[in-house]
C-alpha cells in the first residue's frame, strides 16, 4: 500500500494545484491493483489510453459478446453544453469494443426528454452511425424493461431494468461529469438511473440518494469511463451552466472509486468544495460495500498525452 499512500498524497495536492503536480507516470506492468486511470489529452486518444492502462478492451469484452454502453444522452442539448456524454467518448469506446471483437454494441439510454431529439442533439447517434455492429437507441417503452429484486437494497426493493442490460455480457458506463440539483453531482452511479423505467418513484416515494446506491447493487458495469473533458460545475444536469475544461478521461472498474474521484475534479456551485462523503448517494454506495470512497486510498495512474 506504499504506492497507494503516494498516490493519495499526490492526489490531495493535485486537487489544489492540478496543473503543477499532474504528471505522466507511464504504464505499469502489474495492473492488478490499479483503481483508476486518469488521462488528460485529446478525447479519443485519452479514452484509448485509459482503457489500455486497464489491459485493453479485450479484458472486458468477450469475442462475439453483447455490450451495452450507457452514455448520458438524456437531454436535448448539444455536446458543447456539457449535459451529455461527449460523442467522441462514446464513439471511441464503441470502436474499441468493435476492435475487441464484440458481437453487438448497444448504446442505450432512457432519456428524460423527447428521445429522438436527445439522441440527435447530443450527436451521439451520428457519431456512432458508421461504427460497425453499433446501434444507438432510446429505450423508453415499459415493455423493454423487466422487474428484478434488489436484495441488498435499503430503500429500493425491486426495480424495472432494461432487458438489454440484464442480457448483456458487458455493461460499460459512460457518464459525463456534471453538477446535479438533486444529488449535488452526477457521475457513474447516478448515470445508471437512465437504465431503469420508473425514475419518478425514486424521487417521490423513496430516498433518492439511497435508491441510487441500491441500484448500484444490481447493475454492475464492468468498466466506468467518466467523461470529464468538460465539467458543468453548476446548473446541472441540463444546464445551461458554467463549464470547466479539465479535458480528462477517468476510467475505473469500481463505480464508487470513479465517482469519488469525480467529486474532486472541480469546485462545484461557484466554488464549493465537496468531499466524496458529502455526496450522499456515493456515501451510501460505499456503505453498501460497493467500493472505496476515499480517493487517498485509491491507486491511480495519471497520464498526460498530447
Amino acid at each position: 500500500m506504499a504506492r497507494a499512500g503516494r498516490t493519495g498524497a499526490a492526489l490531495g495536492a493535485a486537487t489544489l494545484f492540478p496543473q503543477v503536480l499532474t504528471r505522466a507516470w507511464g504504464e505499469q506492468e502489474d495492473k492488478h491493483w490499479l483503481d483508476l486511470a486518469v488521462v488528460q489529452g485529446p478525447t479519443a486518444a485519452a479514452v484509448e489510453k485509459a482503457v489500455s492502462l486497464f489491459g485493453g478492451m479485450e479484458r472486458f469484452v468477450k469475442k462475439g459478446g453483447r455490450v451495452v454502453l450507457k452514455p448520458n444522452m438524456s437531454f436535448p442539448a448539444p455536446p458543447a453544453a456539457g449535459a451529455t456524454t461527449s460523442p467522441e467518448v462514446v464513439a471511441a469506446v464503441a470502436s474499441l469494443c468493435l476492435k475487441a471483437g464484440a458481437g453487438e454494441i448497444l448504446v442505450l439510454d432512457n432519456p428524460i426528454l423527447q428521445p429522438r431529439v436527445c439522441l440527435e442533439n447530443s450527436q451521439i447517434k451520428s457519431a456512432c452511425a458508421k461504427i460497425g455492429k453499433t446501434r444507438v437507441l432510446a429505450v423508453t417503452d415499459r415493455k423493454f424493461f423487466t422487474e428484478i429484486p434488489v436484495p441488498m437494497g435499503k430503500a429500493l426493493k425491486k426495480v424495472e431494468v432494461m432487458q438489454d442490460v440484464l442480457n448483456a455480457d458487458a455493461v460499460i458506463n459512460l457518464p459525463v461529469a456534471k453538477s446535479h440539483g438533486s444529488t449535488e453531482v452526477s457521475f457513474g452511479l447516478k448515470n445508471l438511473m437512465g437504465l431503469i423505467w420508473d425514475r419518478r418513484y425514486f424521487h417521490n416515494d423513496i430516498d433518492l440518494d439511497q435508491a441510487i446506491a441500491d441500484l448500484g447493487t444490481v447493475i454492475h458495469p464492468c468498466l466506468t469511463i467518466l467523461d470529464a473533458t468538460r465539467v458543468m460545475t453548476e446548473g446541472g444536469p441540463f444546464g445551461p451552466g458554467h463549464l470547466e475544461y479539465p479535458q480528462k478521461i477517468i476510467a475505473g472498474i469500481n463505480p464508487v472509486a470513479v465517482d469519488a474521484y469525480g467529486v474532486t475534479l472541480s469546485r462545484w456551485y461557484d466554488g464549493k468544495i465537496f468531499s466524496p462523503r458529502q455526496v450522499k448517494h456515493i456515501l451510501h454506495a460505499a456503505e453498501l460495500g460497493l467500493g472505496e470512497i476515499d480517493p487517498a486510498k485509491l491507486d491511480i495512474i495519471r497520464s498526460k498525452i498530447s
Partner: peptide, 30 residues
C-alpha cells in the same frame, strides 16, 4: 414534495431547459 414533505426532489430544476428553476436552501433543505 420538496417544500411540503422535505423530500429530495428537484426534477423540475433538472429538466428546465433554461435553468429558470433553481434550488436554494430553506431550513436546511433544498
Amino acid at each position: 414534495i420538496a417544500w411540503e414533505k422535505n423530500r429530495l426532489c428537484l426534477i423540475c430544476d433538472e429538466a428546465c431547459p433554461y435553468n429558470a428553476i433553481v434550488f436554494k436552501m430553506v431550513e436546511g433543505r433544498k
